[in-house]
Amino acid sequence: MSDNLKKTPLNQKHYDLGAKMVDFGGWDMPVQYSGILDEHEAVRTKSGLFDVSHMGEFWITGKDASKFINYLLSSSVTNVKDGFIKYGVLMLPTGKAVDDLLAYKFNDEKYLLVPNASNTPKDYQWILDHKDGFDVVFEDKSDVTGEVAIQGPLAEKILQKITDINLKDIPFYSFKVGKVAGVEAIVSRTGYTGEDGFEIYVESNDGKDINIVWDKILEVSGEDIKPAGLGCRDTLRFEMKLPLYGHELSDEISPLETGIGRFVDLDKDDFIGKDALDKEKAEGRKRKVVGLEMVGRGIARDDYPVKKDGNVVGYITSGSYSPSLKKNLGLALVSMDVAVDDKIAVEIRGKDVEAVVVKTPFYKKG
């Protein structure tokens, strides 16, 4: 463990559980406990418990809160009901992404934004630099907020044992405030795995409360849960073709290229990046993210060239062995002429390895 790395309030729990720890964007985080394949299977069939306290938590309040968030994000929060959540992209003027995040709408004058952990400082500065002219208060409470996620088909049954919130009253992409293990918390239902599940946010200066929640979930779950690390979090999201910032979305890749155009509301009056996205839509995308299955032996790693008819047409953004499907799969950013069933090649250490373009998401429940 490096003393230079940031630690979540649950850091000692991971060491106590024998987790393999890694430097993840400057955080000391568990990549696996019992093993990536084992934890992946647990989330798909029962449930897994993740420490996601490294994620950011920004509060935007005030008369212009909705107006300000609409200016920052690709998606619109205007018609979002109180108690619901909107996914959106924090936009650059170029039409590319600063980050992708979730906006929790308490009301028109109160929002919680949840950015990616490694982007939190950058996002904070970006939002701060653009708040002039808006009547809002902007607060970063990342350092005093702990968050755990319970994901999997048994998540609701387990969590219901220790909360006074009726979890059936929380539809997908919504949230409620109540008590979990006797601790005041925000409970939402979003997830990054393709399975049902909940996120629990707890604010406290000393981190004790999120430790209480973590311990209680494990205590009441028995054999129905496993602590899960960053490794299976990535394989789970990958199988569902959920974008990961720095891979399928970045300051060089637009949300239209990523394939999340449904979260781009070009009907809004004005927002950062609107002109560039209007132009991109009018002229037509030049690139898109597709799924591929390796036919030859090898794993498609990030940035490996992708070829069609001997010509480079793009590159791998994410690649992995799929624990659910028992195949080597990849996501690639390629030219628009690449289509499902096309035979392509991935250049692996100087050698072209055969692959085929397949439909996504790779994994479908049942």
Score class of each variant (00 low, 15 high):
Phe172Ala: 09
Gly182Glu: 06
Ile210Lys: 08
Lys176Asn: 11
Asp206Cys: 03
Gln151Arg: 03
Gln125Ala: 15
Phe172Met: 13
Val202Lys: 03
Ser174Asn: 09
Glu199Ile: 09
Lys141Leu: 13
Asn211Glu: 14
Glu203Ala: 13
Thr163Gln: 12
Asp206Met: 00
Asp209Arg: 06
Ser221His: 05
Gln151Asn: 14
Leu159Asp: 10
Lys131Tyr: 07
Val148Gly: 15
Lys176Val: 04
Lys208Asn: 13
Leu159Tyr: 05
Asp215Ile: 01
Ser188Gln: 01
Lys131Trp: 11
Asn166Tyr: 11
Glu147Trp: 02
Glu203Cys: 01
Ala149Asp: 13
Val148Ile: 15
Val144His: 05
Gln125Phe: 07
Asn211Asp: 11
Ile158Asn: 08
Gln151Gly: 09
Thr145Cys: 15
Val136Trp: 09
Gln160Arg: 10
Lys157Asn: 12
Ser188Arg: 01
Ile186Asp: 03
Lys141Met: 15
Phe175Thr: 00
Ile127Arg: 06
Asp143Gly: 08
Phe134Arg: 07
Gly191Met: 10
Glu139Val: 08
Gly182Ile: 02
Asp135Met: 05
Asp164Ala: 07
Glu219Trp: 03
Gly191Thr: 12
Thr163Ala: 14
Asp169Pro: 02
Thr145Pro: 13
Phe198Gly: 12
Glu184Ser: 10
Pro153Asp: 10
Lys141Val: 14
Glu139Ala: 04
Thr163Lys: 14
Gly197Phe: 06
Asp206Val: 03
Val137Tyr: 11
Arg189Met: 08
Thr190Gln: 05
Asp135Thr: 04
Phe175Arg: 02
Ser204Leu: 00
Ser188Cys: 03
Leu154Trp: 01
Ala149Arg: 12
Asp196Ala: 09
Asp196His: 04
His130Pro: 13
Lys176Gln: 11
Leu128Gly: 02
Val177Trp: 05
Asp196Met: 08
Lys168Asn: 13
Gly197Glu: 06
Lys131Asp: 04
Ala149Glu: 15
Phe175Leu: 05
Leu154Ser: 09
Glu219Met: 01
Ala181Glu: 02
Lys131Ile: 05
Tyr124Trp: 14
Gly182Cys: 02
Phe198Tyr: 15
Leu167Met: 07
Glu184Val: 01
Ile210Trp: 01
Trp214Asp: 06
Val148Phe: 09
Glu203Ser: 13
Val183Ala: 00
Ser204Gly: 00
Ile217Pro: 06
Ile210Pro: 09
Ile158Met: 04
Val202Gly: 06
Ile186Met: 05
Ser221Tyr: 02
Ala155Leu: 10
Gly182Trp: 02
Lys131His: 09
Tyr192Gln: 00
Asp196Tyr: 11
Tyr201Ser: 09
Tyr201Ala: 02
Val183Pro: 05
Asp143Asn: 10
Arg189Glu: 00
Phe172Arg: 15
Glu147Leu: 14
Asp169Glu: 15
Val183Trp: 03
Gln160Thr: 15
